[in-house]
């Protein structure tokens, strides 16, 4: 019993309810300007921000739109900004972002076209992942691996759940709508590391563009918010280093040809 009370999760009374003021971004194409609505929600501190949104939808406003599916950070569909920061609300307990009587601000992701309330259009985001030839092969299927490469590096990018948080946090995605974005560039590096039948040259030339990996301004916000520890910023830098090495090598090889 004593052990249970020292556990931070168990320290909460299972029946304890907090009153939380949800301030939710609202926008419907049919009804003019975006605004914020306020909802008071009775919720246990260990319940998640998404639980609160579902309570609002169930008991207060059926017109509130937001995406959700798995409730355990696997599907990547519920990504929003909680108190300004990109998060998956399905894994954020209320007690992590506010206290009893406090406010939780819920807004849609930045840098995506707005569809309705907390829902944004991820179509272009998915298309850019496809352009990077990003693919995940089931573990039961045989994959030809280069035995000299580290399998740890390979498995890291498997973790991308395509939630779009990185694009929302990226300041460059805010200023350049044509920028491929951190997820697609991390996927490109992933496919270069382990092509799985894809031509790595085409992935490289796709990333080696003005709006590709060179557009990144090294803010590292993508890696800060990634819920799967993909570290897209490090992948973009690795991609740049790889391209730079190849360019320098080509330059010197060309010099050798000229001298010959």
């Amino acid at each position: 019993m004593k052990q249970e009370m020292s556990d931070p999760v168990m320290a909460f009374d299972g029946n304890e309810l907090w009153t939380i003021h949800y301030r939710v971004f609202r926008y419907k194409r049919s009804s003019g300007k975006p605004h914020y609505d306020k909802f008071n929600v009775e919720i246990a501190p260990h319940e998640t921000v998404l639980d609160g949104l579902e309570k609002i939808w169930a008991f207060q406003d059926r017109s509130l739109t937001f995406r959700h599916a798995c409730h355990h950070a696997s599907c990547g569909s519920c990504g929003i900004r909680v108190n300004g920061v990109e998060k998956l609300p399905c894994i954020v307990p209320i007690r992590e972002v506010t206290r009893d009587g406090g406010t939780v601000l819920c807004e849609p992701l930045r840098n995506f076209p707005l569809v309705s309330d907390l829902v944004v259009d991820l179509g272009q985001f998915y298309r850019r992942l496809e352009e990077a030839h990003f693919q995940i092969i089931r573990s039961s299927e045989p994959i030809e691996r280069d035995e000299h490469e580290s399998s740890n590096v390979h498995t890291r990018f498997e973790n991308c759940i395509e939630c779009g948080l990185c694009v929302s946090a990226c300041p460059v995605s805010g200023t350049d709508g044509l920028y491929f974005g951190p997820a697609a560039l991390a996927a490109s590096w992933r496919m270069i590391q382990e092509p799985r039948g894809v031509d790595p040259l085409s992935v490289r030339s796709n990333a080696d563009q003005e709006h590709g990996c060179w557009r990144c301004h090294v803010a590292f916000e993508c890696s800060e918010v990634c819920p799967s520890n993909v570290d897209p910023a490090a992948a973009i830098m690795a991609l740049r280093q790889d391209l730079l090495k190849r360019k320098l090598l080509r330059l010197f090889q060309r010099g050798d040809h000229d001298r010959a």
Partner: peptide
Amino acid sequence: KTLAWLDMAGRKAG
């Protein structure tokens, strides 16, 4: 898009 530079909500040192 230019004003997006100044959107600091939730952003960190980067």
